[in-house]
């Protein structure tokens, strides 16, 4: 077994997801099938091969640090589920 139900619960916590018992079983099963198939990558000797994180051979794109107009605050808040004055509003974080 590549990944246990306990691992799946752990990864779900890292990813801020939550599953029912049934879903945990299903995901454990499916992720095992997928990861077992993907084990074929381990057959390949990749010693000394540089990883590619990108397809384009790009270096950093620099520009002058000029002040330019950006999205207005009220525009940025328009899609927020909750906001107050110029802030996004979230559930209480600190007790007191």
């Amino acid at each position: 077994m590549k990944i246990t139900k306990h691992d799946v619960e752990h990864v779900a916590r890292l990813a801020r997801l939550r599953f029912s018992e049934d879903q945990l079983d299903l995901f454990t099963d499916q992720l095992n099938t997928i990861l077992t198939d993907f084990d074929k990558l381990q057959q390949l000797d990749t010693t000394g091969v540089e990883p590619s994180t990108h397809a384009a051979n790009l270096s950093n794109a620099f520009r002058d640090d000029q002040i330019r107009p950006s999205l207005a605050g009220e525009e940025a808040l328009k899609n927020a589920p909750a906001h107050e004055r110029s802030c996004f509003k979230v559930p209480r974080i600190i007790e007191g």
Binding site: F38, L41, Q42, L44, T46, V49, E50, P51, S52, T53
Partner: peptide, 12 residues
């Protein structure tokens, strides 16, 4: 084992 390996295979 997974992400880095896959990125190396991407190079190949």
């Amino acid at each position: 084992a997974y992400y880095r390996k896959a990125s190396q295979v991407r190079t190949l």
